[in-house]
Structures are given as C-alpha cells and as structure tokens.
Amino acid sequence: MTATDTRPSGRPAAPPTPTRPARVLSFSQRLSKWDLKVSPYLYISPFFIMFAIVGLFPIVFTAAISFQNWDLVRNSGEFVGFDQYAWILANPQFWTALRNTFSIFLLSSVPQLIAAVFIAVLLDRNIRAKTFWRMSVLVPFVMAPVAVALIFSNMFGDNHGLVNNLLTDWFGIAVPWHKDPFWSHIAIATMVNFRWTGYNTLILLAAMQAIPRDYYEAATVDGAGAMRQFFSITLPSLKATLIFVIITSTIGGLQIFDEPRMFDNTGQGGSAQQWLTITLFLYNIGWGEWNFGRAAALAWILFLIILVIGLINLVATRTLVRDEGSR
C-alpha cells in the first residue's frame, strides 16, 4: 500500500482547489455599476415629475373638489358626497350638451379621418413639389384656434356671411347657421376639420412611408391594383397609427371648446343651447356661476365618457383592421 491516498477506483485523489479571494469593488466601480442601473430612470424622471405636478395632482385635487361645495375665496369646502354629480345628471342642459358634443364629434372626427387617409395616400405618391404640399397641409394647424373660429364664424354668418351669400347667388337659399342645431354643428365641425385634418394627415403619411416598398412591388407583379393594395397592404399596416389617431381625435372631439365658444359673441352655446358642448357647459358653471364643485364633477363625468368611448374605439379599430388584413 502506497502513501498516496486512493479512491475506491484506485485513482489518486485530486489536489484541493485553492480558495479564490473575494473581489472587492472599488468605489468608482460600484458607482459605475449603479450609474448603469439608475441613469435611465433619471433621464425619464423629468417628464414624470412634471406630470405629477401639473397633471396628476390637478386630477386628484379635482376629484376631491367634486365631492365638496367648494368655496374659491376661502379655499375650502363642505363635503356633500355625490350631490354635485346628482345635480349634473339631473340638469337638462347636461344632456343637451352631451347630445351636441357627440353630434359635433361625429360630424368632425369621421370625415376628418377619411380625408386625412385620402390626402396621405395622395402625398405618399411621387408627385411634383411634394415637400411643398406636405408642408401646406400643416398650415391650418399652426393657426391660432381663436383666429380660425372668428374667421369661420363670420363666413357662416346668417345674414351677410360668405357661405350664405354664395348659396343665395347660386341656389337662392340661405342656411340658418346660428339658429338650427344641425347646421350650427356642421359649421363648427368644419372649423375642427380645417384645423386638424392636416395634422392627422402627416401622422398617417409618416406611417405609410415606413411600409416596405417590396410589398407594393410584389402586389403589382401579382396584378393587384391601387385599391387592392390600399385595402390589403396600406390599411392593415396602419393599424397602430390608426388606433392612435382615432383615440386622439376622440379625446379632442369630446373636449371641443374654442370653436363653439367663439361661434357667436356671447359664448354661451347659442340662445337655445344649439351648440352647447360639455366643456362649454363646464366653463359656464365654473367661471360663470363660480361653482367649482359642480364643474369638477362635470369634468370627471367627461373623463369617464372619454375613457369609455376611447376603449370602444380601441377594440373596434383593432377588430376592423385585423379582419381587413386577414381578408
């Protein structure tokens, strides 16, 4: 028997592995390690800090005020529970404003989206001076909303407006733009479409240019026409962008304020509330009656309405675009 220990198999035992000393990180190395983990959050923190100050805090504060009979002078209020919400829902003006808001929203958002897609398709083609035309569609958006409202309110005047003068000369008729609810909604929706169609057009155009051109070349080789390429390639590829545009148009359409506010000299939504919207009704309650509790309650009701309509639009848009792409 030798002096060397052996295992049962007869092989000599492996020498013991020397213990490796623990590595000690210096302060600069630890700082660099923490920098890689923390720095991304520091870069995005300014947005969230500003949102918490100017966005989240007002939302929470408005929710608290909506349950109180708030006094702006004393900066305090008496808790009244859901009384402010009950008053809003029992007020006939709220339902009139809700009907007007949805009417103007549908008359503006639907034609606006269709026109934006159509113009974006035209600008996506190889046309002359395409940079000039792409910049031109954005000009209405950079105009001041008040200026647009003043110009169009004069154009749609009942007596000596430009539109009625042309209609009288050509067809011998005059439209009561400021008296009939439907025609007042048409006039206000025209203002909204004038301002926002170009903005949505550029967003859709940017998404169209990101679609690989190989798809269109392959479709052309297969004999697909322009309409078939649009419904089979362009529209399904714009799903995410269409969802974004529809949701933003929904939010903006249900919060419309400048156009109905400037459509006449009083800013009260018409003599019989023909074009009174929810935001205009909210403004009249808050700054007309100085009842900020009811105004806050109406703001939260509007928020819930926008949330529900936005979710419906999201589900409907995803379903329609997915079905069109699969077909």
Rank of each mutant, 00 (worst) to 15 (best):
D5C: 09
A13G: 08
M135S: 13
P181K: 15
E324P: 04
V73R: 15
V38Q: 13
T17K: 12
Y85D: 09
Y41V: 01
W70P: 01
W177L: 08
I233A: 05
K33S: 08
S153L: 11
F171H: 15
Y43F: 09
S45R: 05
D5H: 11
S26H: 13
N284C: 06
D83T: 04
S66M: 07
L304D: 00
F171L: 13
Y43R: 14
E289H: 14
L106M: 06
I285H: 08
N69V: 00
A13S: 09
L298N: 09
G310V: 01
W300E: 03
I203L: 15
F292G: 01
A64Q: 09
S32F: 10
T201R: 12
H160W: 06
P46T: 06
L302I: 02
F94K: 04
L138A: 06
V308D: 14
Q268W: 12
D158T: 00
P18K: 06
K179W: 09
G172C: 08
V192Y: 13
D5Q: 15
F257C: 07
R261D: 02
I114L: 13
F281V: 00
L314S: 04
F57K: 08
N284T: 03
V245E: 01
R228F: 15
N165D: 00
G55V: 00
N75P: 00
V148H: 10
I49N: 15
T101Q: 09
V321Q: 14
I285Q: 07
L307A: 10
L89N: 12
P40L: 01
Y216Q: 02
K179F: 13
T19W: 15
N100P: 02
Y85I: 07
I186K: 15
I186D: 03
L298D: 06
T317P: 05
N291Y: 10
P12H: 14
I151T: 10
F303I: 00
L280I: 00
I246E: 11
I127S: 07
A272N: 09
W183I: 01
D124F: 08
L311P: 07
V146D: 02
T248Q: 10
N100D: 11
D35F: 15
V60D: 09
Q229E: 10
G77L: 04
V139R: 04
R195S: 02
F230R: 05
E217L: 09
F27S: 15
H160V: 01
A90W: 13
F132I: 02
N164Q: 07
D180Y: 09
A299W: 02
L56S: 04
K130H: 08
R228Q: 12
L276D: 06
T277G: 14
A316K: 14
M143D: 03
T62V: 01
A63P: 00
